[in-house]
Design a protein around this nucleic acid. Sequence first.
DNA 1: CCTTTTTGTAACTCCAGGTGTTACACAGAT
DNA 2: ATCTGTGTAACACCTGGAGTTACAAAAAGG
Lengths: 146, 146
Amino acid sequence: MKTSCRFAMAVHVLTVLAYKEGDRVPSSQLAGSVNTNPVIIRRLLLDLQAARLVETTKGAGAGSRLSRAPSRIHLAEVYEAVEAKIPFAKPTRKPNEHCPVGQCMREVLEKIFTSAEAALKRDLQKTTLASLMTDVQAICGCHGKS
Amino acid sequence: MKTSCRFAMAVHVLTVLAYKEGDRVPSSQLAGSVNTNPVIIRRLLLDLQAARLVETTKGAGAGSRLSRAPSRIHLAEVYEAVEAKIPFAKPTRKPNEHCPVGQCMREVLEKIFTSAEAALKRDLQKTTLASLMTDVQAICGCHGKS
DNA sequence: CCTTTTTGTAACTCCAGGTGTTACACAGAT
DNA sequence: ATCTGTGTAACACCTGGAGTTACAAAAAGG
């Protein structure tokens, strides 16, 4: 299994926003922190906006901020917001028609994948942005704005 | 998140082998069931061999078979055997040196990813090849050797 | 109204990884 | 010796994500 970088980037971005405590942060600044292109960040923010995790405004002095307290944002939401909708890849080619096992393989795999992904989300649900921030502080000792 | 097709293919292959009840099955036949190329199957079998899930012999009348009873093979093993070693993608570029959050992001994400993957494996562990076979029977009614 | 800042978005390029294919050496059975 | 089937290399191909540039449109401030 593999995630795209999007989940890691999203967590990074949201953590930065949490530290900014409601200040509007432009995509260029977030891109600086993640060390990527502002457009990548904006595309990510679009997903986070749709999930009501951040609020973004346009214009001079504008940018994004969290739309909720960090304690009320858990990582399962982030995962759902930015990660691909189809978690487990199914083979592109159809299974052999004549093989009895192949016929119902897709259905069986579907069940397994759904259950596994649910377990994964349950685990991510245990971590909130707030608890993540205390971890960050414990590790590198940074806290407060910028 | 996304898996490669390898996990789905591996489950498919192992299920077929389970139905063959110890008979040696050549890669060409397995490829026929999955509807892919025999080389793809052989590459997959190499991983399954390394994980001691199947035994493969060479020569005329040879092929692969399960090395254990289906009830003693659970999907977490299969997952570990064939899936990429690095489950969650980390950004290729290093985070900005000047950003305090970026500094420890990797470490924090590592913890989260490890925990999430463990949860996923625990879920897969609940399904054995044998229980999967009863599901297959329930859905499409096939049972016994091909 | 004009300028500045910043987002949203399109149109690309680039790259990695997985899939598929062909070809061939080697191993084992009869 | 022959036939069957694996292990493996060397490709071509395709998809998806990351990155980049460019530009229209929105909002704020004079």
